[in-house]
Design a protein around this nucleic acid. Structure first.
Lengths: 123, 123
DNA sequence: GTAAGCACTATACTAAAGTATACCGGTATA
DNA sequence: TATACCGGTATACTTTAGTATAGTGCTTAC
């Protein structure tokens, strides 16, 4: 397998296609992933800073989701042994490079709203 | 508000940004949405055809997800009064235009796999 | 008249995701 | 000594997502 596959070729291969899209979807799925990633797009932040930036999130969920993002290689967790300890979270390369995916989603979401939700006056 | 917003401007507006990305995410989230959309990318299909194309899906879930996709404007449902009735599902403009989003996801997913899952030999 | 196919629906269940509330050890401040 | 901040964890709960299994009304095929 060559080190760089063209998109067109991948699309002919449903297995790899599905795996890759699923990876992306899994990383972003859940109620709080997007707010967290969004917050970290503005730079590294501490636990409480993230929590304060996201209105109704509980520490349990924030902790859980940050762990999730960490094991998935989206954020890094750095502990400084200050007194008391300071913990900072930061997006990895993978995390930051979600930007084009988000862009595509924004574009689609806006277009879709114009087409559908604009017509029917629901939601 | 002008009829066409530049992406850069939208990004400065967290509310609209989050709404649009959430729309996209909601449309794609769930275990069976992607397989269903994927199947329909190859053209309009009947209920049983979709079911046969997606290994372990139950008619309940297929029915539920198709309804979901329909009310979200991703697929259309057409009933032909043949004997017995024929029902066909087809992607709408919005449904078909998910392509660039998927492309972005494939690209990110593949890159991410190379970076992370390639390193640690897990999953 | 029995069975099978189509396009589903109904009921009941399990599992996963998310919430609420309280608490931990350490430190520093009043 | 009492309170509060930091970065969380523990326990119990509710809600949502998904599964299992059976059945519906209609029709044609045997």
């Amino acid at each position: 397998m060559s080190k760089l596959l063209k998109l067109e070729e991948v699309k002919k291969c449903p297995a790899e296609f599905v795996l890759a899209v699923n990876d992306t979807l899994n990383v972003l799925s859940g109620k709080w992933k997007l707010p967290i990633i969004g917050t970290l797009l503005f730079g590294r932040k501490r636990f409480k800073e993230i929590q304060n930036g996201i209105p109704r999130i509980t520490p349990r969920m924030l902790s859980k989701e940050l762990k999730d993002l960490e094991v998935n290689g989206i954020v890094t967790r750095t502990v400084y042994n200050t007194i008391p300890v300071t913990v900072e979270y930061e997006l990895t390369t993978s995390g930051s490079s979600l930007d084009p995916v988000m862009d595509a989603m924004i574009t689609w979401g806006l277009e879709h709203r114009k087409r559908v939700i604009g017509n029917t006056n629901s939601l």
